[in-house]
Every structure is written in structure tokens, then in C-alpha cells.
Design a protein around this nucleic acid. Structure first.
Lengths: 224, 224
DNA sequence: AATTAATTGTAACGATCGTTACGAAATAGA
DNA sequence: TCTATTTCGTAACGATCGTTACAATTAATT
């Protein structure tokens, strides 16, 4: 293949890095993905109603007009942050529950994954983004409520599927109720999310998860 | 006793109705107790940050200056509402768990009591006041966080005490862990509180509670 | 009747809310 | 180099936020 021109070589990576070929006007000074992450971080602490757009602008380094160009308005921005959070946590939960791990170990892994979200790098507790910010708005805001309800339903479903296969594998008694156990597993996740927001220490929450898993999986099964 | 004068008769109820004898100036046009209840109702729907004082003034029928004279400021008013709510719900839970009822029946009664708070007269779901409004503020507001943590601790304690006496009464196996079961009982309360705020139907939440109680109390014990 | 004390409603305070004109800046194509 | 196009930062918009003077009102006390 002798027809290798330099233009061909440089066009290939250009087209790969971004979908369109050329943006035409002044280039964006922000990374939308990183900005959404920082906006999420800000909402996480002070909630939706409690977070002015100024603080989000400061956290992202974006000007208000840029925020509106990128995300629409405050409400749409929050909705996007909420959807992104659900995606992230549900993926982490599914990964924890997947594989050939023993049931109790898989459950503990799911709770540990949640705790790693609830406690930020600095060690300060912020709890669950959904429970800490979305639940407050859910009553009056139909879109937020819909997102919360859908996320809770998927979490229930993931737990229930895991308990169902656990029963098939003989990890649970044959008369165990996968739906009921999934409800308790979700409830454990929820109580941890709440307590983290209320200032509980990470080690205490881990122990709460452990106690819950012990009861859910049948009395003495957590350590092996 | 012949010394029954009319002044004596009319002074007695007067002193009983209010602690002091005479307020001196213009009398209050509001009932502080009723106003706190209506303020709570308003916070309940739209949260602390999401509720302007105007709405509270409208709900209570009080003018802003009267609100400040009665409660201090918005933050103190909310704190008082939060304390009052804890008092109310903890009393209801204790009453449900007290008495000689079977364990499963007592637990279901506690959850039913909670549901009667979570669903207003009109049938619209507003969920738990604490989970719906206080948890959002708890991260940044130390006073609210303290109130939430203390309330959760008391709820845990009430459940644990009930499980402890249940074990003594032979309602549970001797090797049952009252603390672990109490954690799951609290978690069930929390998951119901969250789901109610997310729009779940009351009947579904009742069934969730029933499934949880069945697992917690040992498989087949809910109906007798 | 006059005085004192307490609360009332109105109206406004400065600060901040979400949102948006507007002109300068920066890049691709001509 | 010039034009077209897109995003930038600044600065401001009206609305609303929590809070408070202020004068009128209502009652007990003198």
C-alpha cells in the first residue's frame, strides 16, 4: 500500500477522538463529562434546592451561560447527574453480585462498593446521592420521583435475581423467598445510605451490613 | 365547703389553660402549637431549603414578624418541627411495640403506624419527614444531623428492646441476635419511608413490611 | 382616661436566586 | 486576510430569598 499520505494519518485520529469532523467556531473550554461529575459533587453536599447555580459554576469552573449551553438549565443538569449516579451505582452493585462468589460475600461486596461511594476521598460522609438529594424533591418533582422509583426497582431486581440463583445453587434453603430477601437486602442498603448521611462512621456501617447479611443468608454463614 | 365563690370557679380554669395569669399587651392571634403543625406540613412537602418562609406564613396564616416572634427564625422553626416529629413517631412506635402482642403483630403495628404518618389524609404520599427533609440537610447542618442521628439511635433501641424481650418470652430462638434483628427492623422502616416518598402505593408498602416481618420473625409466624 | 406592654400587618431592606443579553474572543472555512 | 460560526466572560435582568423597621392595634394596668 504505497498511498500513505500524511493527511490520511492525521485525519484518522482526529475523527476517532470526536464524532464530528470540525466544530467550526470557538472551541469549548470545558469537559462536559468532568463538569457533570463536579456538579454532582456539589449537589451531593447541599442538595438540589440548597445548591445555587453559582456554586456549580464555581465548582465546574464554567460560567452560567456555558452551563446552560451544556445542560439546559439547573433542573436538567440535576436530572442528568441523577441518571449518571444511578448508572454508576447500579453497575457497581451488579458487578458485586455477579460471578461465582458465595452469597454472603457477594452481598458484602455490594455494600462495600456503596460505602466507597458514600464516603468521599477526604473521609467526610456524604451518604447516598439519591437518598440525600433526590428523595427530598421526589414528592413535588415528578421527573425526579420517576427516576428514584425506577432506580429502586432495578436495585430490588438485581438483589432478587442473585437470591434466586443462590437458591438454585443450594446456598439458600429451598423454601427461601427470594423476593422477601431482596427487599431486606435493599432495605439494608437504604439504612446504610441514611446513616451515612447522618454521620455514622464507615466501620460501624460495615458492621451493620455484616449483621444484616448474617441474618439474611441464614445464621452462621458470613465467614465462609 | 361553703366558700365556693364564682371568682374561684372561674379562676381555676383560667390558670389551668395557660401558665401565666395575664399577658398584658395585645393577645396572640395564632396558636403556636397549631402553627408548628402547619409549618411541619409545609416543610414536609418541599423540604427545608425548598420551602420559602412566605409559604409557611401562608400555611400558618401568620405574618413573617409573628413567625419570628414565635419561633426565632426559619432554622429554629424547622428544628422545632423536626424535634416534634421525632417525638410523635417514636411515641407511636413505642406504643406499637409495647404490650403483650405477639412479636410479628407488634412489628406490623409499628409499620402501620408509620404508614399512617407517611400518607396524609388526602392519600397523597409524602413519606417520612426525617428521611424526606432532614436527611438532605444533615451533611452540612450539624444540628439537624445530630437530631437525625439521635432519633435513629432511639428507634434502633426500641426495636432491640422488643426483640430482647421476645427472646426471653420464647418468641425467638435462644441464639437469635436482638441487635441484628433490630437493625433489620429499622432498615425495613427506612426502606418504607424512602419508597413512600418515591411514590409507592400504601398497599405495596404494607406488603413489603409483611414480607420483612416474616423473615425477621422466622419463616411462618406472621399470621398468629 | 391615660399609660404601658405586647402583637399585629405592611412594606421594605439588602442579598441572592435562576436565567439571559451582549459584546469580545477564538477557531474553521473561503 | 476576511468572513462565518461558536463559545467565552461580564454584567445585568426581574423575582424571590430570609429578615426586620415601623406604625397601627389591642389589651392590662394605673
Amino acid at each position: 500500500m504505497p498511498q500513505h499520505t500524511t493527511t490520511e494519518i492525521f485525519d484518522m485520529p482526529r475523527r476517532k477522538s470526536e464524532t464530528a469532523a470540525a466544530p467550526r467556531g470557538r472551541p469549548r473550554a470545558y469537559d462536559a463529562k468532568a463538569a457533570l461529575k463536579q456538579a454532582t459533587e456539589t449537589f451531593w453536599r447541599t442538595g438540589y434546592s440548597g445548591t445555587p447555580l453559582d456554586k456549580i459554576a464555581a465548582a465546574t469552573g464554567m460560567s452560567p451561560p456555558s452551563l446552560y449551553a451544556a445542560f439546559g438549565n439547573k433542573h436538567e443538569l440535576y436530572l442528568e447527574a441523577l441518571a449518571s449516579y444511578w448508572e454508576m451505582t447500579l453497575a457497581a452493585t451488579r458487578e458485586a453480585l455477579a460471578g461465582d462468589r458465595p452469597l454472603a460475600e457477594a452481598l458484602m461486596l455490594a455494600y462495600e462498593a456503596a460505602l466507597s461511594f458514600y464516603f468521599s476521598r477526604k473521609g467526610s460522609a456524604r451518604g447516598c446521592f439519591v437518598i440525600g438529594t433526590a428523595v427530598a424533591e421526589a414528592v413535588e418533582d415528578a421527573e425526579i420521583r420517576k427516576s428514584v422509583a425506577a432506580g429502586l426497582r432495578m436495585l430490588d431486581g438485581d438483589f432478587e435475581a442473585r437470591f434466586r440463583t443462590a437458591r438454585e445453587r443450594g446456598e439458600l434453603k429451598q423454601d427461601a423467598d427470594p423476593e422477601a430477601l431482596a427487599l431486606l437486602a435493599s432495605a439494608t442498603m437504604h439504612t446504610i445510605a441514611i446513616r451515612a448521611r447522618a454521620g455514622a462512621r464507615r466501620a460501624d456501617l460495615r458492621e451493620i451490613a455484616h449483621k444484616a447479611v448474617t441474618v439474611i443468608c441464614g445464621s452462621p454463614s458470613a465467614s465462609h
